[in-house]
Design a protein around this nucleic acid. Structure first.
Lengths: 132, 132
DNA sequence: ATCACTGTGCTAGTTAACTAGTACAGCGAT
DNA sequence: ATCGCTGTACTAGTTAACTAGCACAGTGAT
């Protein structure tokens, strides 16, 4: 399953879908020209409303990530950096996996881990500091 | 500034506040017995509605993280693991900081980094796999 | 007793997210 | 030409988030 929004996170479902589509494109799991799951089948699979999927797809099209073709489907655009950019993100996956592995080995919960990362990215830690 | 919700994330503000309070407690930035910022002053500081802060505080009290005393203020409870647990989370900060540093050095944006972590925690990567 | 803080609880309003449902239009294979 | 898919667009409803505002009650210092 390529996409799997988690309603209990409190993040709007359509936003999670958008993030997950972008991530799939960034890692090369979806490449330019690839077709995305249809609005209705994906909605059924995720047990959400097709309008929610359609909203996510419309926003993604507005951002230039995908292209919607009436009657044909949704496709990944060739806007990104292509192979090299995907390699960069995919190449970074082991860094993230290793960090998460180490944190879990230390006994931290996924919630604690998520909060640590959010704090770091937001520049709320002493070590991180604000970023312009 | 200890707390700083980001409205543009799409995550409800009261949830972000909750996460940030929990994080502060987990890292020892707030210790049992410490008083939290008042509802009204914090709302003014963050330019949000006092009811939003109050909602976050009520939920945190419901989860046992803080204690609300009518007329006195909001205080961190002694429910957690105390010094040792805070050391564990705070000790993990350099792991996160180092990982984020390395990812940024590779040219990844904060959004890309965030998506990588969310995917890893959600078990959506090949390396991560689903977790029970 | 008073004051300036604190939290508590409520009304009323707007906006956003999500749902269920429906009908229409385009595409591509047959 | 038809069919089964695809996206498009809309109505109508519920729920949640957030706001502005107000009044009340508790606390602790003076």
């Amino acid at each position: 399953m390529l996409f799997r929004p988690n309603p209990s996170l409190g993040v709007p479902i359509y936003l999670q879908l958008m993030e997950q589509v972008k991530h799939a494109v960034e890692t090369g799991a979806l490449r330019p020209g690839d077709q995305l799951p249809g609005i209705r089948p994906l909605a059924e699979e995720l047990v959400i409303n097709p309008n929610t999927v359609a909203k996510a797809y419309r926003e993604l099209e507005h951002e230039g990530v995908i292209e919607l073709r009436h009657g044909a489907g949704a496709f990944v655009t060739a806007h990104g950096g292509g192979r090299k950019a995907a390699d960069k993100v995919r190449g970074a996956q082991p860094v993230v996996a290793a960090a998460v592995e180490r944190l879990r080995a230390r006994g931290l919960t996924d919630e604690e881990i998520r909060r640590l990362f959010e704090a770091e990215l937001a520049g709320l830690t002493r070590a991180g500091g604000p970023r312009g």
